[in-house]
């Protein structure tokens, strides 16, 4: 099976129903995308599939074989992603950091679709869990990146 991840093609030999998350992490060594729940509850595994924020723990690899997949590993090569990373740093968002790959990816999808999001847009798109409670800093960083 061929996957296009961050603009590069990868050949993987794997059961087609394997979640994309584990193909990224164990087959391709891209561990920036995290496992939190495996049940579409937390969003730690968020990647972009054709620009949409997608929970890779419940996304079979065969279902994205013809899609463009973007992961956190390519975040600074993306204009929107780079802007968000700078906003994340200037707002000192992460605490333990474990949810933050998924948070940044969710924000990237949001700003690609709505470059000037309202507070409601941000609330609707930024639904990933953070056990460290960085939610206010996340919202501030998204707003700052949108204004940058």
């Amino acid at each position: 099976m061929e996957l296009t991840i961050n603009g590069t093609k990868h050949e993987v030999d794997i059961e087609p129903d394997t979640p994309l998350l584990w193909v990224l992490r164990d087959e391709l060594g891209m561990t920036g995308t995290k496992y939190g729940c495996g049940l579409a509850q937390c969003g730690a595994c968020t990647v972009l599939v054709d620009g949409q924020a997608t929970r890779s723990c419940v996304t079979s690899v065969e279902s994205v074989a013809r899609s463009e997949i973007m992961t956190i590993e390519a975040i600074t090569e993306d204009t929107v992603g780079q802007k968000l990373v700078e906003a994340w740093v200037s707002n000192q968002v992460p605490q333990c950091g474990y949810c933050q790959s998924g948070q940044v990816m969710a924000a990237t999808a949001l700003l690609k679709q709505s470059p000037q999001p309202t507070d409601e847009d941000i609330a609707a798109a930024m639904v990933n869990l953070c056990r460290c409670g960085t939610y206010n800093a996340i919202a501030a960083a998204v707003r700052q990146a949108a204004e940058a």
Binding site: G32, T71, V85, V89, G97
Partner: peptide
């Protein structure tokens, strides 16, 4: 500023699970 914020914002921070 915290030392680990950029790595944690770009997926580079490594935990045991990684």
């Amino acid at each position: 500023a915290r030392l680990d914020v950029r790595d944690k914002s770009t997926g580079k921070a490594q935990y045991t699970i990684d």
